[in-house]
Design a protein around this nucleic acid. Structure first.
Length: 430
RNA sequence: CGGGGCGUGGCGCAGCCUGGUAGCGCGCUUGUUUUGGGUACAAGAGGCCCCCGGUUCGAAUCCGGGCGCCCCGACCA
């Protein structure tokens, strides 16, 4: 993409409304714009981040055997009356009335809907287990939206729902999802730690939250350094991985257990701040029973499937990653989810040799690079590239162009390399 | 939902107390200049001063009501 023709409205100054780093940087880097309290438009670069996160989520969900579907944002109140949550959910649910005075709502989650869909079509034990998810916008009318997309009212969430015939099956699904989640976060390029959690509004009795470590996180987290050694991509088996994840100590300040904490050797104790980016629940027959979803078992008896739900805050992750990955100059995107893998900085627009090098690079790198072809000074281009946080900056100017050299800068480390165009390209693509 | 604060060109702010020509910096446009870390100079464009009502000869400014947004707390992916 050519920056001169892109809607990436960066800001030199910080909007007064933005208090925390990720919010400031998302506005300054031209990723989002606020449209109302807790409601954001995702501009082209911001959307690219959401899409890259979503793509990784999809791959890992598929690998774990989950199927993607897409449910609507607007739901009928009747569904929620079945489970009893229409009354129970309270003011966080955005309630809407249509022209015929029918009660609708903008979905804050989809347990009722997915259960209704399954109830209609799945009749036999032979058709289970199944695990379904979608990536869809949710709305929760937070009393106090804040921190930009970290606590918006409208947010993009991956929410998945597991249906199993018995507890053992549901527990296995739960374990698979934990592994899939840890792999997802690992691929995104952040450290996430699963912690025992309360089940809150969704209900149920087994739940973990996934927190990523960031100094500005909302909750205090305590964990055993043994977590840092765990590599989900190398897990021997789902069971072994789950065993490992649930025996090592980790807790948020709310659930912190001093007695257990004291048993950890001092050199392995880690304390920090965390941002919750995902949560998984097992809640058994809560919805299958309240909504009367049964399948016929092998012996002809009715079985209420055992359920769980599995969420990842996709839009929140975008903000949370910035909280974890930035410096004074701007964002430092992990390679996997940067809006653009590389930026090409043309330091002398109009210089034939420089233009040629940049044009060729742009063509070879394709859509995943941003070509800064504006009539701007070098300093401005450097500053904006740092702000936007591209993992790589390919810096081309007349100085190096004369002998076919460019400078390659790694945003995360600040390292710079003087390389031939071909070598720079190879390094960026490796 | 309790407490606090703020709404003035795109962004950041001053002006309001003490009513009288709407201002500054950045950004934007044009020209010159500069050319590897947000260059300098010059000339421009751009405002229902959040909305409604009141007081007044006169309101960005004073008074009343509304709306919007932010921060702290309780609550939450």
């Amino acid at each position: 993409m050519r920056l001169s023709q892109s809607l990436i409205p960066t800001l030199k100054e910080t909007p007064a409304d933005a208090q925390i780093a990720s919010h400031r940087l998302m506005l300054r880097a031209g990723l989002v714009r606020q449209m109302a309290s807790g409601i954001y438009a995702w501009l082209p670069a911001g959307l690219r981040v959401l899409n890259k996160i979503s793509a990784i989520v999809r791959e890992e969900q598929a690998a774990a055997g989950a199927q993607e579907l897409l449910m609507p944002t607007i739901q009928s109140a009747d569904l929620w009356r079945e489970s009893g949550r229409y009354e129970a959910y309270g003011k966080e649910m955005l309630r809407i009335t249509d022209r015929h005075e029918r009660d609708l709502l903008y979905g804050p989650t989809n347990e009722e809907m997915i259960t209704a869909i399954m109830r209609e079509s799945v009749k036999s034990y032979r058709e289970l287990p199944q695990n379904l998810y979608h990536i869809q916008w949710k709305f929760r009318d937070e009393v106090r939206p804040r921190f930009g997309v970290l606590r918006g009212r409208e947010f993009l969430m991956k929410d998945g729902y597991g249906f199993d015939l018995d507890y053992a099956g549901a527990l296995l699904t739960y374990k698979k999802m934990m592994l899939a989640y840890m792999r997802t976060f690992q691929r995104i390029g952040i450290t996430a730690i699963p912690m025992r959690a309360d089940t809150g509004q969704i209900g149920g009795d087994l739940s973990h939250e996934f927190h990523i470590l960031a100094p500005t996180g909302e909750s205090g987290v305590f964990y055993d350094a043994a977590f840092e050694a765990g590599d989900p991509s190398a897990a021997a088996s789902v069971e072994a991985f789950y065993e490992q994840m649930t025996t090592i100590y980790a807790a948020t300040d709310e659930k912190h257990d001093l007695a257990a904490w004291e048993k950890i050797p001092a050199e392995r104790k880690r304390e920090g701040r965390g941002i919750e980016v995902g949560q998984i629940f097992y809640f058994g027959k809560k919805y299958s029973e309240s909504m009367n979803f049964t399948v016929t078992g092998q012996d002809g008896t009715k079985i209420f499937p055992e359920m769980g739900s599995y969420g990842i805050g996709v839009s929140r992750l975008a903000g949370a990653i910035i909280e974890a990955c930035h410096d004074e100059a701007g964002i430092i995107w992990p390679d996997a989810i940067a809006p653009f893998r590389a930026a090409i900085l043309n330091l002398r627009q109009g210089d034939a040799a420089t233009d040629k090098i940049c044009g060729d690079l742009h063509e070879k790198l394709g859509q995943d690079c941003l070509y800064d072809d504006r009539e701007e000074r070098a300093g401005a281009k450097f500053a904006e590239a740092d702000l936007m946080g591209h993992p790589w900056q390919i810096i081309a100017g007349p100085r190096g162009a004369a002998n076919g050299q460019v400078e390659l800068k790694r945003r995360a480390t600040g390292e710079r390399f003087e390389l031939s165009v071909a070598d720079a390209l190879a390094k960026v693509l490796s």
